[in-house]
Design a protein around this nucleic acid. Sequence first.
DNA 1: TGAAAACCTGAGTGATTACTCGGATTATAT
DNA 2: ATATAATCCGAGTAATCACTCAGGTTTTCA
Lengths: 206, 206
Amino acid sequence: MPRKSRLSPRKQAVQARSRATVDAILEAAAQVLARRGYAAGTTNRIAARAGVSIGTLYEYFPNKDSILVALVERHLSRSTDRVLEIAVRLAPDADLRRYLRRFVNAMLDLHSDQPGLHRVLFEEAPHPPESHACALRFEETLAHAMESVLRESPEVAIADTDTAAHFIVQTAEALTHRFVLHGLHQLPRKRFSDELTALLARYLGL
Amino acid sequence: MPRKSRLSPRKQAVQARSRATVDAILEAAAQVLARRGYAAGTTNRIAARAGVSIGTLYEYFPNKDSILVALVERHLSRSTDRVLEIAVRLAPDADLRRYLRRFVNAMLDLHSDQPGLHRVLFEEAPHPPESHACALRFEETLAHAMESVLRESPEVAIADTDTAAHFIVQTAEALTHRFVLHGLHQLPRKRFSDELTALLARYLGL
DNA sequence: TGAAAACCTGAGTGATTACTCGGATTATAT
DNA sequence: ATATAATCCGAGTAATCACTCAGGTTTTCA
């Protein structure tokens, strides 16, 4: 089982046909992983599900890991967009408590979107450095947005807004993740969302 | 690669010699996993490191997964003891803030103890139902202890102490885990511990 | 229109690895 | 002492799986 034998794909997809192939492979990987788990995510099965031959798969992905990394990148890039949209939409609004509530709900939505895939990508699958860096970037981006909101809000009396922003993002990320994937004390979603929002609000002294 | 072909070991260790063998295998597994990661944790390598033959390993463990499960059980059982010791020692003490501080530090110690092994067991390795159940029991136990402390403390004005206890345990668990394994905004430990304690205290209205 | 480039094919290869089994060695019990 | 059970051994088996390669098909473009 040669691994990481090649670092870049043999070919970059240039025609529309091959770009569709690359998409199909990623989509197939997402489905196979979400439905059958990491162990069942063999390259042959992914290729079969995508309707392409195994040889084609290896034209565009240098090794198995690179498929996972591409999936994580796609997933987190979309997630960043969705959360940041909320950040931007609400930044001018001065009501911090409402901002926190929307942030919490956005995180809940993110994790609820494709929970199966999410679980495999971030719990079950190994995290090569590339995908780990991706996850770090994701959280840094969110923390940065949160920090500027905190800094400019007159309601916040906290000096170290940078640390506070990181704590808020980490807490929201971790708890919503656990709630969606494993449940938390059998709480209904609304109740959980309220409680987490309250926790964050009290942390900020609201 | 037959998997899960057998559900119980061929033999239970009854003599002292074989009990030592079982221990050696678990210890070897812990070392191999901590040092080389999950992928390198092959049964043959574990047996070699333990100084026993692969045949012996399969006398006492029905399959590879069962070794991981046994490791998780051992790890969490010890962890439970250590945290509960603190809970018991401090329960009579009425100063909740100090209790939270000790709790946070205990969780930090737990995660700092064998971070390599911890990372592999709870992030990298797959979680079969048995080990997942173990983790759930661990958190339920902690939450239960925390709940009784909250309920009996005159400082706490919160009605739903059960939910609050679960939130505190989950938050402390998740954040200390992330801090120890991945760092958090490059905060030094003392600073992190203070901030997390403050977050939990404010959540309780202290 | 035809040649070059892009794209696709899938049987096959080499390496790995969980696990077995027949039998050797050591301890226990009568 | 010796039969029986417990423990240990490790070469071998069967299965899996990431990845290759020689060559076919389709698209582009001069």
